[in-house]
């Protein structure tokens, strides 16, 4: 839903880190997006390519990897991935939010809510 602003932050991070290292060109950018965020990787990629057009990262290969969710029940200690329902309206996953073992709604999200810039490959 907010792919544009997140992409702007990603681009800012990438360009800052690359310039700190006196990069001439940025060859690739590796990003990880949690499946429980409201970020559609395809849209992030689209915006990033747009934003980076007139920068040293204009030819960078953008790789986005999805991070699967990992949840833990605060009540019965169940751990695992949640049943997700792919909602075509938002291109994202809404999880049913209940523990499949005890039915509790007190689930802790351990993984799946991140939006990480992992690696930048540069040349000098």
């Amino acid at each position: 839903m907010h792919e544009l602003s997140i992409s702007q932050s990603i681009a800012k991070t990438v360009l800052e880190k690359a310039s700190e290292q006196e990069a001439k060109n940025i060859l690739s950018v590796e990003i990880e997006i949690g499946e429980l965020t409201f970020l559609n990787p395809e849209q992030v990629e689209f915006w990033l390519e747009e934003i980076l057009k007139k920068t040293p990262a204009k030819d960078a290969k953008i790789q986005i990897r999805k991070i699967h969710s990992q949840l833990k029940c605060r009540d019965c200690q169940w751990q695992g991935k949640i049943n997700t329902k792919d909602d075509p309206l938002y291109h994202t996953y809404f999880f049913t939010s209940h523990c499949p073992q005890c039915g509790s709604s007190s689930l802790k999200i351990r993984k799946g809510k991140e939006c990480l810039v992992r690696k930048i490959r540069i040349s000098r």
Partner: peptide
């Protein structure tokens, strides 16, 4: 942040752990 120093013209990787939602 880890980075591998390189000579002129060389290619290298900057490894980051920059979580933008975490930053918020």
């Amino acid at each position: 942040m880890k980075s591998i120093k390189a000579k002129e013209g060389e290619i290298f990787d900057i490894e980051l752990e920059e979580d933008l939602l975490k930053r918020n």
